[in-house]
């Protein structure tokens, strides 16, 4: 019997689903799994019992919250897919700010038929079993996760930073050499250091390294020594890391004797 899966999108750019739709082996996937729900691919399908639910996006509306809870109730295992689902995403950047004010600024007096909230990761609302990081995730990782589930096993999640892959690829370190604001040291690996390989500093799109091992404080110190301002460092780290536990505290610590 084929394993049943559901693929869902909450508030996000739907890029993770698009990536999943574009994988080369999509026909193999369709052959080996019964896809009972995938709104992006087909308007048919109801949320029903599945073995594994893949959910991209963060919870930004009450409807998102309700849908997520329904998905969770119906799934044996839930996989948070991508930076929005795992860390709140770019829309989670306003976390901690005055929401009412931002809402007024964006929507003015328009009538919105739902209650909106600050984008937060899935784990704030439901139990998450696995994380498939990326913005969007890499094809080989999507396949790896699906294939391990398919044989009744589970994927081994990476817990180390982009730097490891950058060194394995043999790329020059642009943080050392050019003093570029590379977030590789705090960002979870899996992309094979694509951006640093093209001389572009990592922006941290895959999200912080898990298990509390993203050392934003050490990196802020390194950036500071290269002459970057606190404001700049903060803004850059917040793009994808705003909701990382103690991010503010970690940056403050480095600059504490200066303000």
């Amino acid at each position: 019997m084929r394993m049943k899966i559901g693929i869902h999108g909450l508030t996000s750019c739907y890029g993770c689903q698009l990536k999943m739709a574009c994988i080369e082996e999509i026909l193999e996937v369709a052959k080996n799994f019964e896809i009972v729900y995938w709104n992006m691919a087909s308007s048919k399908g109801e949320i029903e019992k599945v073995d594994i639910a893949f959910v991209e996006g963060s919870v930004v509306t009450e409807r998102d919250e309700e849908e997520l809870k329904l998905i969770r109730e119906n799934a044996d295992a839930l996989v948070a897919v991508g930076s929005c689902a795992i860390h709140g995403g770019v829309q989670g950047m306003i976390f901690g700010e005055d929401y009412e004010e931002i809402f007024r600024e964006v929507y003015g007096d328009s009538l919105i038929d739902y209650e909106a909230k600050i984008g937060e990761p899935l784990r704030k609302y439901v139990e998450v079993d696995y994380c498939l990081p990326g913005c969007p995730p890499e094809e080989h990782e999507i396949l790896y996760y699906l294939a391990t589930f398919g044989i009744g096993s589970y994927p081994e999640e990476k817990d180390y930073p982009v730097c490891a892959e950058c060194r394995r690829q043999g790329y020059p370190c642009i943080l050392i050499e050019k003093g570029m604001p590379c977030l590789g040291p705090v960002t979870v690996a899996g992309c094979n250091a694509k951006c640093p390989g093209f001389n572009v500093a990592c922006i941290g799109c895959r999200g912080p390294v898990p298990h509390g091992t993203a050392w934003f404080d050490s990196l802020a110190r390194t950036f500071k020594e290269k002459g970057m301002s606190k404001e700049y460092i903060k803004r850059r780290m917040e793009i994808f890391g705003k909701q990382y536990e103690k991010l503010d505290e970690m940056i403050e610590k480095v600059f504490e004797n200066e303000d």
């Binding site: 930073p161 394995r168 050392w215 050490s218």
Partner: peptide, 13 residues
């Protein structure tokens, strides 16, 4: 160790 980024550059190189 407080300064360390845990990036693994030291061991990879």
């Amino acid at each position: 160790s407080e300064k360390c980024l845990g990036c693994g550059n030291c061991t990879m190189t």
